[in-house]
Computed example of a mutant assay.
Amino acid sequence: MSPKRFPFTREISLAVLAYLYVPVIVLIAYSFNANRTATVWTHASLDWYGRILINPSIRAAAWNSLVLAICAATAATILALMAALAMRRSFLGRGASETILNAPLILPEIVVAVATLLLFVSVGVQLGLGAMIAAHTAFCIPFAYLPIRARLEGISASYEEAAFDLYANRFRTFRRVTMPLLWPGIMAGFTLAFVTSLDDFLTSFFLAGPGTTTLPVYIFSAIRAGITPEINAISAVMLIVSVLLVSLSFFLGRLRR
Results as ranks from 00 to 15, higher is better:
N55F: 09
V114D: 05
H136G: 03
L248K: 10
S57M: 12
P104A: 14
A18L: 10
Y49M: 09
F164G: 09
G50Q: 04
T74M: 06
F120P: 12
G50D: 00
V67S: 02
T137P: 08
G95W: 13
N55Q: 03
A138D: 02
R89S: 12
F6I: 05
S204I: 01
R149K: 14
T99R: 14
A60F: 13
G154C: 00
W183V: 09
I231S: 10
Y167D: 15
E230K: 14
V123E: 03
I28N: 02
Y145V: 04
A61S: 12
W41M: 01
M87T: 07
A29I: 13
L92G: 07
F139W: 03
R36D: 07
R172Y: 13
G93F: 07
R51S: 10
F164E: 15
I25D: 02
A162S: 11
S158D: 15
A83P: 06
A38P: 05
S57R: 14
A144L: 06
L202N: 10
T99M: 15
L207G: 03
L152M: 09
R257C: 03
W48D: 08
V246Q: 01
M179P: 04
V16M: 02
R36Y: 05
A75K: 00
A144F: 03
Y159R: 06
Y167I: 11
S247Q: 07
V177W: 01
L146P: 09
L27W: 00
R5V: 00
V195E: 03
L66E: 00
V177G: 01
F190T: 05
A80L: 08
L248Y: 01
S97Y: 14
F32K: 04
S122L: 13
V125R: 12
R51P: 04
N232P: 12
F120K: 13
G226P: 10
Y19G: 04
F164N: 13
T178R: 00
L192Q: 07
L85T: 06
Y21C: 09
L239R: 06
V16Y: 08
N35F: 07
A193Q: 01
L215Q: 08
P216L: 14
V121R: 14
A193T: 12
A131N: 10
L53V: 06
D165S: 12
V40Y: 14
A86H: 07
Y159L: 05
T178N: 00
A61P: 04
P210I: 14
A44D: 00
P229A: 11
F171I: 13
L245Q: 06
A34F: 06
Y30C: 08
L105K: 09
I148Q: 12
K4D: 03
L119M: 15
N55I: 04
R176Y: 10
S235Y: 08
A29C: 09
W183T: 11
A84F: 10
S242C: 01
S2K: 12
P3K: 02
P7N: 06
E230L: 15
V16A: 01
I100C: 14
L192Y: 12
I227N: 09
F32R: 00
A18G: 08
V114A: 11
L17T: 03
